[in-house]
Design a protein around this nucleic acid. Structure first.
Lengths: 340, 340
DNA sequence: ACGCATCGTCGATACGCATCGACAACCCAA
DNA sequence: TTGGGTTGTCGATGCGTATCGACGATGCGT
């Protein structure tokens, strides 16, 4: 493998000049710059990452803490990861995975070894065990999700409260007087991810504001359970029923349950779910969705940590940024009554 | 951050001794070892990864090339990634992501920079653009998937041919005379991942061997398309119909289509799909599955590359290893006719 | 013509660890 | 008792890059 010294020799300059050509931290004449760049190209030179990290004390790598995820949450997680990795590259950073089964000390390890310059923490729970750890770490970090105690932390997340509000408001606008919220599954609720709470809060708030009655039913893992929950909700419903199922895993169950009851989406009942556009559109009746914009969240997270890493001076102390979700009308919600 | 020199000073030994305590490459007396280890613990010493990589010429990092994945494939991909990352850690390696939108030269970059000691390539297609690149790379690599030209490469994959065989054999054993294979969606087939072909081959082979008639229908993205495909297949079916839907994305569509036709799974019709156990079991009628054992594949891949990295001597030239799938009987296949 | 600041380049050094050669201390066999 | 091997430790050096101080060359105003 060629080194910068080889490049220097070929270009007839000193090694330090080669280094300055790469970093641009000192002026270099057009002539030498060209000579050096030609030499680099000719040798297919790539700077050694280890040496660079050793000398500069920065690795140009960001650690990505991925949680252990059961099955269903996985699809969305993958979206985050690939967008994060791609955006990081655009700022000349690489992504190193830190899995949860190494425990929070995995974070201490990668930072202690100076393998990473900063951390992105995914799927942060209300009382996440990783939070106290990163507080004491000497590198910047950004969280996806919002823990209970987030003073002094940088958090980004979808605005779940606003999402809940938007759903109810849109449904109320369509004329629904009763809205049923199908909760996340117990397993998720138990994990104390507080976005569930935030979504609920938005729903209730908008319910109060619009006068819509809100019914809460638990998210069920089986079709039978879902049918019972739906039947239960229908009994308490006034007017055309509307359902919100923000957890992706519930979506097919809800749709199937309504089908089995003979209710046609977009005609007898309105349904709002959360899933990708492509999935929503390949349904028999394309589903109206509330989109939490995971790509936006991912990009913003990277942007934020890269900022902290490149401008250590203007580093803000803390931040809490909520990404605005998007409500996408499709065919699973009834059209507004004709205004006479 | 403490360095090995600090540890040495505190322990009253030389820096090289500290290094030998860590690596074990020279004998160290019990007494000094203890002194050094105490000093390390006291200072919470962690060796600097950059310096270590520079001096030892190995980074203890494996690059993981993840493809761009549309939506549906994502859930399974996430399973691979987390198992790979976790297994790698058990062998003291970390995982660095290499996304596909950097193109194949992303691989050249991480290797050229000596950021990684080896590569794992996921979702390898028949004529994958990354294959010619890694052939010329001076580090070992292992592929998940099997490209057309795989001489001199190390490939691991599920045994899709055997999987196809197993499905047909099991269904034939249950008394089915006709078996319908719901193909992957066009988008997948077009990607030239040749596991589709291999699965087909297994199905056809077992069809010939058992005398079962095999019907092929295209995988459809919509429920309407699926209903048509199913109806079509039923017309050509003799006896109790059986369906195999190896692509996860087709599974719900197939089940829904059969429901709509009034066919009860496990009674009027047999269905075999490919999905996770938990997903299969939360259906109204638990689904019989063919499990491609992604965790096994992931672990084996890591094991293989770690072997190549740690025993450069006994490095095998090439390898093609197929992981045996598992057929899991549940309730969506009819029970064998009572043997009189 | 002079002094002075800026530009462009070089040499030297540090970064933290792994590894090699050297060597002292020790053990055992002859 | 001595010689040869083993065990345990040290000092020195190298890995490839970034960066600092130095310094000659150049341009400017007066």
């Amino acid at each position: 493998m060629p080194t910068s010294k080889d490049v220097a020799r070929l270009a007839g300059v000193s090694q330090s000049t080669v280094s300055y050509v790469m970093s641009g931290r000192r002026p270099i004449s057009e002539k030498t710059r060209k000579r050096v760049e030609d030499a680099m190209a000719q040798l297919a030179f790539q700077p050694n990452a280890g040496a660079r990290a050793l000398a500069s004390r920065r690795s140009q790598v960001i650690g990505l803490a991925i949680p252990f995820v059961p099955d269903l949450h996985r699809g969305s997680m993958m979206g985050f990861i690939s967008v994060i990795a791609a955006s990081a590259r655009q700022s000349d950073y690489d992504i190193l995975l830190v899995t949860d089964d190494e425990g929070p000390q995995g974070l201490e390890r990668v930072v202690g070894q100076q393998l990473v310059d900063g951390l992105i923490i995914m799927q942060v729970e209300g009382d996440d065990a990783r939070v106290p750890v990163i507080r004491n770490l000497p590198v910047p970090s950004v969280l996806i999700g919002i823990p209970e105690k987030h003073e002094g932390l940088k958090c980004i997340d979808a605005d779940f409260e606003l999402a809940g509000q938007m759903c109810v408001e849109e449904l109320a606008k369509l004329g629904h007087e009763t809205v049923t919220l199908v909760n996340w599954q117990d397993a998720v609720v138990r994990r104390r991810v507080n976005y569930v709470k935030r979504f609920h809060h938005g729903v209730d708030k908008a319910g109060a504001a619009t006068g819509a009655k809100i019914i809460h039913v638990p998210g069920r893992a089986t079709i039978a359970g879902m049918e019972k929950a739906v039947a239960n909700a229908l009994e308490q419903t006034k007017g055309v029923p509307a359902f919100i199922a923000p957890e992706a895993a519930n979506q097919d169950l809800l749709v199937e349950a309504l089908n089995n009851l003979g209710l046609v989406l977009g005609k007898d009942v309105s349904v709002v779910v959360n899933c990708s556009d492509s999935l929503a559109e390949r349904q028999r009746i394309p589903l109206t969705t509330i989109d939490f914009e995971p790509d936006q969240v991912s990009r913003r997270v990277v942007q934020m940590i890269v900022h902290d890493l490149t401008e250590p001076t203007s580093r803000s102390h803390e931040a809490l940024e909520l990404i605005r979700p998007v409500f996408k009308h499709r065919k699973s919600t009834i059209r507004p009554r004709p205004q006479r």
